[in-house]
Each structure stands twice: as C-alpha cells, then as structure tokens.
Write a protein that binds this DNA or RNA. Structure first.
Lengths: 246, 246
DNA sequence: GATGGAATTTGCCTCAGCGCAAACAAGACG
DNA sequence: CGTCTTGTTTGCGCTGAGGCAAATTCCATC
C-alpha cells in the first residue's frame, strides 16, 4: 500500500528528529515525556507521488501527521465530479476522522509529491484524548479552523466570481506552500490547471484563460504544473474584487 | 439582551423536564447523575423572534442547546452579503465556538421564531470535557457532522446548478423541520425567498421563479414566508439532476 | 377598512463562464 | 531522437442565472 521513495532520499525514518517535531503546533503545550509517549506509538511511513494516503469510504484505520511533502484531499461525487477539499502541508494532521466519530475516511488523500508522515492507529485516539488533554485540545483547534475554512469556502462560492475565487486560491496556496524564487513566489508542488479548477469550482479552461490573462499582465508566471505568483499584491486586489476591469 | 416571549406561553423555564432532555443525542451515554450535574449548571433562556442568540465577532461567553424553536445561523461578509450557514432545530447545539478554541462567535444566530434554550458559560467547557468524556465526545461528533455538512455544501456549490441546490435545500429543511399537513410537508417556521437564496448562494428572484415554476407543476405550495413541499419525491428527482427538463 | 411596509412575482436584458472542439507544447519513455 | 501521453491554450457559440425595474399581493397596525 505505501510505496517507497526513490532511493537516495535523505529523510529521517526510524530515527525521528523529536526536536523538530516538538515545535509543531499540534504538540504545543505537551510535556516532553508525553510527546515521547505519543510519538513512540506512531509509525513512520513514506508515500510515493500520486499514491493514496487513504481513500474515501475506506475504514479509518489510522490518522496521520504529515512531516514532509504535500497531500491533496479530494472528494469524489457519485456523478464523477472531483472537489479538492484542501492541501495538507508539512506539520498538518490528516485523516482525523476518528476524532470526529467517523469510522470511514470522508475523502481521498493523494500525495502530490513523495511524502513522509507519522501514522497512529485510530484505536489509540480515545486513550490519547483521555491521557493528553492538550493534544486533543490542539487537534480540536485544528478541526475548528477547518470548519471555519469550509464555511469561508461556502461564502466564497456564494458571493464571489470565478476570477476572485481563483485569485484567492492562489493566494492561499502561496501562503501555505509558497517558496520565494527570483521570479516571484512559487507554489512548491506540481499543480495543474485542473487542480486549481477543482479547488475553485470551475473548469480547467476557465483557469487556463485566467492564468493566461494574468500572465499577460505579468501578475503570474506559469507553466506545466507550475505556478509562480509575481505580484501577490495585485492578485489580492483582484481577489477582493477591487480590480479595475480594463 | 434576551427578550421575553409573549405572555401566555406554556414552556418550562425553571423546572426543566429532565426526562425529555435525557433523550437528546448530545446526552447519549451519560449517567443520570452526570446529566444532572451538567444541566444544573445551565440557565434557561428565552429568545424572542428575530432577536439574536449571539452575534458574530462577539466574545463567545456561552454555548447553547436549543430546546424549542428554530435558529438561523448567518455569516455576514464585509461587503454586505449574508450567507446562511445552517438552521438549528430543537435538540441541537449552537455557539460551541469554545470547544473549537475560538474566543468569539464566528456567525450571527437569529431566532426564526420564539425560542427556548439552555445556556452554559463557555468557561465551564474545559471542566466538562475533562469530567464527562461522553459529553465531549458527543459534541465533537456534532462538530464532525457539521464539518461534513460544510464540505457537502462546498461540493453542491461546485457541481450543481441553482435548481438542484434549491431543491436540496428544501429537502434538507423538510427533513430537519418538516411537519406533515394535509397539503404536504410544511417547513415549520417562517422562511422567505430571500432566506432560501442565502442558503443556496443565489438571489431571491431566482428562488421566486423556481418556486413559481414548481407551484405550477404542483410540486410545492408556497406563500408568504411559507413553503409546503407537496411531492418530495419529484423534488428529489430534481435535486439529483435526473429531471426531464420539459 | 384604510394605509404603509414588506414580501413576492415577473418581464426584459445582459453577460460571465461553460461546453465543445481543435490545435499546440512539453516532458516521458523507449 | 522520434513518438506518445498528458497538460495547456484558445476560438466560438450558447445559456443559466443575475441585475434592474415595476407591478402586485399580503399583513400588520392603527
């Protein structure tokens, strides 16, 4: 199920760097000893690019903490549509269905690049919640902010035009996973027009047209599965709907 | 802040009917003694029609359990749009910001009719979570299902046409708050075209046109702030997009 | 029962964005 | 180095649904 990374990768597997992990917001306020007890029960896994971390409807056997890479969480509808729920960045949790009383995963999670994650068996959750209150409280904060995000998304879909939504999506992506380059801020994983369309409720054609237009205005530079935001500020103007339609 | 009901209302205030409350899913699996300890710390409040239960951005001083009535939860955007997040029915929680680590309410809650609710001070939450694990677990189940709902909503907005979304909204409403009458299933509180528009991300004009068309087909009967679904099954056909556009 | 305000209906016009289709470019792979 | 797959671009036409505006109906209230 979990394919291996290409050989030559230099990421930690057996010997996890606890000091790095301890800095993550999920573990905020947790004593070192407790942290060890929590992390000690996880196994470390690798997921190759384009492989699933977990799948919709599948029994939720584990929950995960992404250490390295990027994961796309997608919901598939019965009639064949795909809607991207969110992208997971390093340090974020995923597959926390069990904390919400679900027994199956509500979405598919696909590695956008080769990934490393910690995995805990879901059955440990009740014990964790009881023994490490700050851990569970941190996790519920995550859930809370995802609920907020989802509502914000509903509001965007209800009140904004496609152009604004796509602009917002790019801004979110560079905020979450942007890497400065000399050209501008690069979205640090392969992302296609189709992917952006699935995030914003539109079509790859419309996204392509928008990116082309923005490219002409030197707002972004983009290529195959690659988007660089050159002028975040002007993009924000569009996102907020204060753009001067010239 | 909390206006009174009209005189002559016969609802319980001081003497709460515990046996009724005990049946609610929020309290599932909780010992009678614990239930008493939880409910004992709540105060019972009344909210008059059109009055706020709590308001967006306000400090989240309390969380609530609706006992009677219907509450509309609405988010306002900076640019004046209003998006209805959900309707709360009797037995449901609202204002549970504190359980998610928020200090302010993320939305406005307005009584759609005169309401009765229990209110707990938010500061009790950590103690409740620690002392009554099934209570907190039930609450997080609620949160989980709301997260699911929100995602479902995003998917609807991304993949369905307005007609389907409005049909879905009516079906959800009759499921949640439908009352059988000889005409059909009545949505049991005043709801305007505008309200439906705010639930579905469209305009009152479009909702009005749709309801008129459905009225002609004898699918629904509607009037001023009043909607009766006559043929839920045919409405479901529309909602699923299997309608024969005649 | 007259008045005023709120909710609803409807016609007409416009356009953002989708669907379709075809061409094109860039890697991947042998 | 040619070939093939996958992602991208772009033109064209169409239409679902919103915007605007005016008329109408229903209630609440005095």
């Amino acid at each position: 199920m979990f394919a291996l990374l290409k050989p030559g990768e230099k990421r930690p597997l057996a010997s996890l760097d606890r000091s790095l992990i301890a800095g993550l917001s999920v573990f905020e306020g947790i004593a070192a000893a407790d942290l060890d007890r929590i992390v000690g029960q996880a196994r470390s896994i690798r997921i190759a690019k384009d492989q699933p971390v977990f799948e919709q409807e599948q029994e939720a056997h584990s929950f995960f903490l992404l250490l390295d890479g990027h994961v796309r969480v997608v919901k598939s509808t019965p009639d064949g549509h795909e809607v991207t729920v969110r992208y997971i960045s390093p340090g974020e949790l995923m597959g926390i269905a069990s904390a919400l009383g679900l027994t199956t995963y509500p979405a598919n999670a696909i590695a956008a690049v080769d990934c490393v994650a910690l995995a805990w068996p879901s059955r440990l959750w009740p014990a964790f919640a009881a023994s490490f209150p700050s851990f569970s409280s941190n996790i519920y904060k995550t859930v809370g902010s995802r609920l907020q995000d989802a509502h914000a998304r509903v509001i965007e879909m209800s009140t904004e035009q496609v152009e604004q939504r796509v602009a917002h999506a790019l801004l979110k992506l560079i905020k979450q996973s942007g890497r400065k380059t000399e050209e501008g801020i690069l979205i640090d994983f392969p992302i296609s027009r189709q992917d952006v369309a699935e995030m914003t409720g539109t079509t790859l054609h419309t996204v392509s047209r928008l990116l082309s237009a923005w490219e002409d205005q030197e707002l972004v530079k983009s290529g195959r599965q690659r988007i660089v935001v050159v002028e975040p500020h002007r993009l924000l103007v569009i996102a907020e709907g204060r753009a001067t339609k010239s």
